[in-house]
Each structure stands twice: as C-alpha cells, then as structure tokens.
C-alpha cells in the first residue's frame, strides 16, 4: 500500500472522526528534519481521564500517522477545560511548543 502523506488536515480529520474531537488545532513544527506536528485536541472522550490516558487515546487514534512522522506533541482537553482556558487567557489556548526552538523541532528526530 502506498504511503499516504500526513498533513495538518489529515490529522485534524482523523481526530475529529476517531475521537469525536470538537476542536482540533494542528501546527507544523518541523525544523527541516522531517514531518513534525503539535496539536491541541478537544474531545468529550477525555472526560474523567488523566493526562496519560488522554495521550494514550490520541496515540492509539493516530497510531499509523504518528508512526510515519518524526515528532508529535499534543495537549488534550475536554470541552469544559478548553472553554475555561480560552476565557482565562482571553482566547489563547494553543498547541504546546515546549521542547522546540521558536516553534521548530531541533536535533535528532525520527
């Protein structure tokens, strides 16, 4: 089977479909060493789950996609948490960029 290319749109579509995400932001953070994405995922399926379980849900939903790209980050929120953070920060709730330099991945990826 031909390898399908992973895009911000394809990741967003996958999360919307597989995790019933109500809001997804995907951002390219590749620094030239391969495909790398960071994301904000808002889904009611995160209710009552701790951070590790939420990330595991996302990793499972994107198993094939993550296997094909070189770096992946996510912030997982329930719709309530997302709304609260948007209210507190004045509309600034975004994919995490920790570990990047100016929003780009550095070093040995893959």
């Amino acid at each position: 089977m031909a390898q399908t290319s992973i895009t911000e749109d394809s990741i967003r579509a996958a999360l919307t479909e597989r995790l019933k995400a109500t809001h997804v932001e995907v951002q390219d953070m590749s620094g030239g060493c391969g495909q790398a994405f960071t994301s904000l995922v808002v889904s009611p399926e995160f209710e009552g789950k701790n951070s590790l379980k939420r990330h595991r849900l996302v990793n499972a939903a994107l198993k094939d996609e993550i296997a094909q790209i070189h770096a992946w980050s996510a912030k997982c929120q329930t719709p309530d948490e997302y709304e609260k953070e948007m209210a507190v920060t004045g509309g600034k709730d975004e994919p995490p960029l920790d570990g990047t330099e100016g929003g780009k991945v550095t070093g040995v990826t893959e």
Binding site: S51, L52, H55, R56, N59, K63, I66, A67, A71, W72, S73, A74, K75, P96, D98, G99
Partner: peptide, 22 residues
C-alpha cells in the same frame, strides 16, 4: 508510547515531554 523521551518514576511510566512539562 510512540515517542522519546519517556519518564519512569518508581518503575511506573509517567509520560513523555508534553506530560512532563504540563
């Protein structure tokens, strides 16, 4: 877990960079 780094505390998996930072 599909990415590196990975943190263990007392033999229990804690998470990767996103979880460590948050």
């Amino acid at each position: 877990w599909p990415t590196i780094p990975q943190l263990y505390i007392d033999k229990e998996f804690v998470g990767g960079c996103d979880i460590i930072v948050s």
